[in-house]
Amino acid sequence: MKYPQKKIGFNPTKLKEVAVKVSETTELMKFLIEKFPEKSRTAIKSMLAHKQVTVGDLVTTQFDFPLKRGQMVFLNKKKSEEKPRFRGMRIVHEDADLIVIEKGSGLLSIATDKEKVKTAYSMLSEYVKRFDPKNLIFIVHRLDRDTSGLMMFAKSKKVQEALQKDWNESIIERSYVVVVEGVVEKAEGTVTSWLKENKALVMYSSQNPEDGQKAVTHYKVLKTDKQFSLLEVKLETGRKNQIRVHMKDLGFPVTGDKKYGAKLNPIGQMGLHARVLAFKHPVTGRMLRFDTPIPGKFLKAIR
């Protein structure tokens, strides 16, 4: 089937949908310039900025978005501007190389040997295959099942390896909000220890540099009441269960975290939310920062 190539006006209220098939691998801007030579580069950039360009089912504003042979590029396909909906997570950012999501509490990041239920990984795998059955998704880091918040996935093995190899250099900021049991009187502080996992798969702290992986956690008190404290926590390192162990070490376990000593659960989930994720893009080099509001039930827990 041949798709007509009509002249495009740039008034969003007047545009009609146009579909063009990609015949060879290229980048989106180059493709649009070649297909619509009567339009200036500035005009095409305006279309991208106004979300009037869709590749397959994905609305994109990225001028260097990679195109593959056989894909369809649509102009002003408004019905595709609706973001896909997933149970227990939402896509915060997507480009040609990676996806950032906000995960809900109770959703596994990736399946385990014992549990192979619906996971963030499996839902994203199904999602990217809608555009091309050969597309894959790669996990970069994890959040515990009962931790909510921001996490990132790569769209290729190369990007995954680049992020994991230079993790400390690429990640500019990872901060969490945490509800803990007890009144934290010290306004801010830092916890440093070496973490190691025992045979029961429980992480514990050591002050011996040769006994585990170094873990550094910074915290600041945001709000307290007679029973609980709300903290902002920033990670200098990213070890398994790091915040949970360090809060226990301080004597203020994360609410809802029975594994590490919590006795109360005022919000119906573990009181740990990955609020901010800022990093250097592994391909473009751009600095990206994403943040979410403090969950309402975290705030309500502190009266």
Results as ranks from 00 to 15, higher is better:
R244V: 02
K186A: 13
V177A: 03
A120S: 07
S109T: 15
F74R: 10
R244N: 01
V180T: 02
K103N: 04
G104Y: 01
S170H: 13
K68S: 12
A200F: 09
K234I: 08
P253S: 10
R244M: 00
W167N: 01
F63T: 12
V276W: 03
F290Y: 12
T190P: 08
K258I: 13
E82M: 12
D257T: 10
E173D: 11
G88K: 00
H50D: 13
I101T: 00
L201Q: 14
K199A: 12
I172S: 05
P282N: 10
A111E: 13
S122C: 00
I267F: 03
D249Y: 03
D291Q: 15
K51E: 15
L48S: 08
T26H: 08
Q160P: 07
L15N: 09
P253M: 05
K155Y: 11
L299T: 11
G251I: 01
R174L: 06
F252I: 06
L250V: 01
K220R: 12
Y3M: 08
R286E: 15
G182R: 07
I44H: 04
T224K: 14
V159W: 00
F279W: 09
V22A: 03
V128C: 03
M151Y: 00
T54M: 07
T224L: 13
V180A: 02
T112Y: 10
G88L: 02
L67G: 04
K129W: 04
L75K: 09
K134M: 11
V20Q: 05
K214Q: 14
I99S: 01
T60W: 08
D57H: 12
Y219G: 10
K240W: 10
T42L: 14
T54V: 15
V53D: 04
D257V: 08
S205E: 13
Q52A: 12
D97A: 09
K51M: 12
E82P: 03
T13P: 08
Q5T: 10
L32N: 06
T42S: 15
L299E: 09
P253H: 07
E173K: 11
R239L: 02
T26E: 13
S122A: 01
G182I: 09
V183H: 14
E126C: 11
D95Y: 01
R87V: 14
D132C: 09
T224Q: 14
L136I: 11
F290S: 08
S40M: 09
D95M: 03
F74Q: 08
P282W: 00
V159S: 02
H273C: 05
L235E: 01
R303K: 13
G70E: 11
N168V: 08
P37F: 05
K79P: 08
F279S: 06
R41G: 04
A215S: 05
K186Q: 15
G268T: 02
V276I: 14
T26Q: 13
I139E: 01
K83V: 06
S175E: 08
P37K: 07
S125V: 10
T147R: 00
S193D: 02
V128N: 02
Y3V: 05
N198H: 10
R244A: 00
T237A: 09
L48R: 07
D57A: 11
F63K: 13
T60P: 05
K220G: 04
F31N: 00
Q62A: 12
A154H: 07
L48D: 06
R90W: 09
